[in-house]
Computed example of a mutant assay.
Amino acid sequence: MSLADATYRADGAGAILPDRGGVLGRLSDTFWRRPGMLLLLMLLPPVLWLGIVYLGSLFALLLQSFFSIDEFSGLINREFTLKTYGELLRPSNLDIILRTVTMAVLVTIASAVVAFPIAYYAARYARGKWKALFYLGIMLPLWSSYLVKIYAWKLILAKEGILTWFFEKVHLQWLIDAWLSLPVVGGNSLSVSFTGTFIVFVYVWLPFMILPVQAALERVPSNLVEASSDLGATPAQTFRNVLFPLALPGIVAGSIFTFSLTLGDYIIPQIIGTSRLFIGQAVYAHQGTAGNIPLAAAFTVVPIVVMGFYLWGAKKMGAFDAL
């Protein structure tokens, strides 16, 4: 060792440590010198999983939608055709698509209406332990089993359920009977009706709307609301011109969850609802019972296309900044 090296080691007090021996030591030194290699190795497993398992299966499913079913043998004809997509334009299949999209839109609107006052209170007034209690109350339903919640609602909405009992006690059973007698939204009971499906959808997906709206409202400076009031605006005008435009990205961000989850769900309509199918049920039926995989794949393309346009519009409205 030279005099300069000795002087450096004495004065530098080990500013640069010597290379560690062994395979692990050399590997650690290599990652320290080349952080990009470490980042690549850390990202490689999830990227492979996303690219091969998720996107690969998605493209395989998309490929199946360009095949068709032989009407005589029932076997898949592996020749590229748009015949299967043409079957989506049949009245029965169009009815399934329109019913699902309508339900997704209604659930999204109802979730936004219910979530806004809750989120506003949490953003403006809840402090300390009350804010912690708010987050606990919103997140607690997500910790319980998905199926348990649905079956619990089935019992609540049944003819012998607690909701019917309550309306009988307040002498409003005639109101439920009148509603259930309506042709589209009604049924034998709330547990086997379009209305019951709507109620359970709103309950299950509501936390996914509250949290983004609450996050967006917390970013709104309180002095803007005070300035609006000082300038003579009514509460309705303040809401319409100040609060709602600034909270809109959060509402759109929450709607991404409520709309997409409703669009693809098949368990809730299967347990609570009528015999009229939704897209998820149609995919399950065609792939499992009927064995018509091309038509099932074509049905799965519909939510992908709808959500593609929806996400494009949401990005234009700045919804991703509120996620």
Rank of each mutant, 00 (worst) to 15 (best):
G22F: 08
D11M: 12
S222Y: 08
L27M: 11
A13W: 10
P141S: 06
G196K: 08
Y146L: 12
L27K: 03
T164N: 15
S275T: 14
A282Q: 06
L147G: 02
L163Q: 11
G56Y: 08
L40K: 10
M42H: 08
N93F: 06
L40G: 13
F198E: 00
D230S: 09
G161L: 10
S260G: 14
T164C: 13
S222L: 09
F167Q: 09
A297N: 00
A236Q: 04
F167M: 15
E226V: 00
T164S: 15
L62Y: 05
T102S: 15
S260P: 10
D265G: 07
G264D: 14
M307S: 04
L98Q: 12
Q173V: 14
Y121K: 07
S73D: 04
I118W: 02
I199S: 07
V192K: 14
D70Q: 02
L175F: 15
A314W: 04
L75K: 14
M209T: 09
L44V: 13
L63A: 12
G196T: 04
A122V: 11
V283M: 12
V283S: 03
L48T: 10
S222F: 03
V204N: 11
W312G: 15
E226H: 00
T238I: 01
Y54S: 11
P249N: 06
T84M: 03
W32P: 00
A13I: 09
